[in-house]
Design a protein around this nucleic acid. Structure first.
Ligand SMILES: [Mn+2]
Ligand SMILES: [Mn+2]
Ligand SMILES: [Zn+2]
Ligand SMILES: [Zn+2]
Lengths: 137, 137
DNA sequence: TTTTTAATTGAAAACAATTTTCACTAATTA
DNA sequence: TAATTAGTGAAAATTGTTTTCAATTAAAAA
């Protein structure tokens, strides 16, 4: 909310609620999921406002689109700097990690392909500890 | 086409042309791009058949959806086994590479997060050699 | 505090992408 | 060759997202 305000945006109910939902979610949410949750707190919110808030939060790098095999329209909060995602394929729980060292790989691929490599996306998929326990029963 | 036939699908014009376009493309194409190209060879083809062929090729693992910042609705042919993509952000030219060794990283992240890590997505973005030359003029 | 203002809102309409329906066509089998 | 049935394309339906617009409301000004 501070960041929105600092960028000249007004602090409104639809924004507050959308931000709160995204900030508290451990898994990526899409517009309609946010909308369903938001209505519980603020019945008159419109889906359009959710879309518009997502757009602004993404511009300000406060949320990040998450690409998964099932779709790429969900967002997760908490992005800062160069990080990557670790996603539970059972419940969707998503964590960030960093410290990947791809320098050697990138150098090799660059040499073999004659590409100048500027960026990379890395996502790990697995089963979170909660879902491991549920599974073992 | 062989693989389609082996799986009980008929060899039709719409399929032949869609397959040919995807097989010959160096960059990922979406349904409507394939459709535009296909119409040049077979004017009466329908966009629906392109969608249906994409669906089957994806099921048979002959093509793969490509995730990019601009969107995730394009497909590239030639997927076999565990490989990753290298994409030119100028012209879209896409190559496969393999031999990434993420074992150490995966072990560390697994330990820190208590996830069992089962899969990963890695995509490198850069500038291909053609586009490097065009740029330097 | 009250008034002014312009950004923001939600409903509805518009738009875009994809899927479904259905009568017809054509690839394969007998 | 004829019979069968998968596959086709046009049109309609559906889904997800964006635009429009009059009304509302947060923030600035008085
Ligand atoms: Mn990295
Ligand atoms: Mn790999
Ligand atoms: Zn989980
Ligand atoms: Zn290029």
């Amino acid at each position: 909310m501070e960041c929105l305000q600092a960028n000249g945006y007004r602090l409104t109910n639809p924004r507050r609620i959308t931000v709160e939902i995204l900030a508290n979610s451990k898994r990526p949410l899409n517009a309609s999921e946010i909308y369903q949750l938001a209505k519980e707190q603020y019945a008159k919110i419109g889906l359009v406002s959710v879309y518009r808030t997502i757009e602004k939060l993404e511009e300000l790098n406060l949320i990040q689109r998450v690409h998964k095999p099932e779709g790429c329209h969900a967002y997760i909060a908490g992005f800062t700097g160069h990080q990557h995602l670790l996603i539970c394929t059972k419940c969707g729980k998503t964590e960030f990690f960093e410290g990947d060292d791809l320098q050697q790989l990138i150098a090799r691929v660059s040499l073999e392909s004659n590409f100048i490599i500027q960026d990379h996306w890395l996502t790990l998929f697995g089963i979170c500890s909660d879902c491991q326990q549920k599974q073992s029963h």
